[in-house]
Design a protein around this nucleic acid. Sequence first.
DNA 1: GTCTATAGGTGGATAGAC
DNA 2: GTCTATCCACCTATAGAC
Lengths: 213, 213
Amino acid sequence: MRARKIDRRPVAQPPVAQRILDVAEQLVQTRGFNGFSYADVAETLLVTKASLHYHFPAKADLGRALIERYHLVFGQALAAIDRQVPDARGKLRRYIGLYDSVLRNNRMCLCGMLAAEYATLPIQMQKELLRFFDANEVWLATVLEDGRRAGDLSFRGPAKQRARSILGALEGAMLVARAYGNGRRFLSAAKQVLADVCIEHAAERELMASAAF
Amino acid sequence: MRARKIDRRPVAQPPVAQRILDVAEQLVQTRGFNGFSYADVAETLLVTKASLHYHFPAKADLGRALIERYHLVFGQALAAIDRQVPDARGKLRRYIGLYDSVLRNNRMCLCGMLAAEYATLPIQMQKELLRFFDANEVWLATVLEDGRRAGDLSFRGPAKQRARSILGALEGAMLVARAYGNGRRFLSAAKQVLADVCIEHAAERELMASAAF
DNA sequence: GTCTATAGGTGGATAGAC
DNA sequence: GTCTATCCACCTATAGAC
């Protein structure tokens, strides 16, 4: 039996490409895609710019990888919510929690940030960006529709439309709240978004209460 | 009596500084403050970069002037609404119309765009930016509070809080809609924002209707 | 006020050694 | 895979002539 090789890795570390993405992601979420450079990433990771270009030849490649990973992780988070939370209101609360946790790190949603810079992005990034928003809307619309059918939620009009306005409202609330450096601003707005898909339900209760007495 | 000098100006034109601001504004609203350069403005106006620096020595000066003018014009528009429209719902509709007209030119709200780039902006621009949002919130909160008192609007909680969530919702709806290049997305979301401050009113009507029959 | 010319820096990206 | 060295385009900004 052959002796095993000694594992020289000091500690388990994520592969280089991942660490690059981690740093770049933070930079894009705070400064924007046009607001950071390879030099910024290199300085943080104590490597040279040339080394970064080995992993991501062009900035567009890095940007595309950022969106794809973000989309993937976000999708996994949504799947986890679906597994763990049964009711629609609870799911929406958790969904809001995802945004809130991003904002707590003084970051903007990666894709909200990129949406602002949309006109300056490589076409590939533009496409991936819309795919992210599409996926969010599909998930939200499903939750909304199911919640309404179950009587857990109440709102007018198509669920798809509601999903879009909720997505926009959360992105916008985040955008402004981060400028003020005030996370409570976001949570306050998010709670109202949530209340707005329950409000008629409350009105129905009032109706029933007034009918009872 | 002395002969008058011939007016050599071909047509009445806005002063140079204004034309610079016009071009820069359009560029910032579409590409962001970090996404345009003096060279872009110079090329459009057929002047040299050096000439621009005469009017706005540093880019920060240009940026600050942009926000101040935007704030001023926006304030005048709000004052016009107050003069022309008596009811709160009508005022909100006109307010939404302001955003819509910006989006129709494939632009993002100047200050929404700058909010995304907030972390990279000169301090002076950051301050002016928050002043703009503050003014919007004050106006909105007044409209909301007056509308509620007059029975024209109906919503829960402090008007200030509603004002903030409406501002965020409109900025966010704009942000996403512009990426999709679809103005209807914005209008759809905006209508829901409007409906959400009338919805309980509708519920009250239902209540009264059910009480009557 | 606008120009030419240029400084001084940073951007993304590549070649080739190790 | 990471490095050194370098390229070239572009950036903000200034000096000084007209």
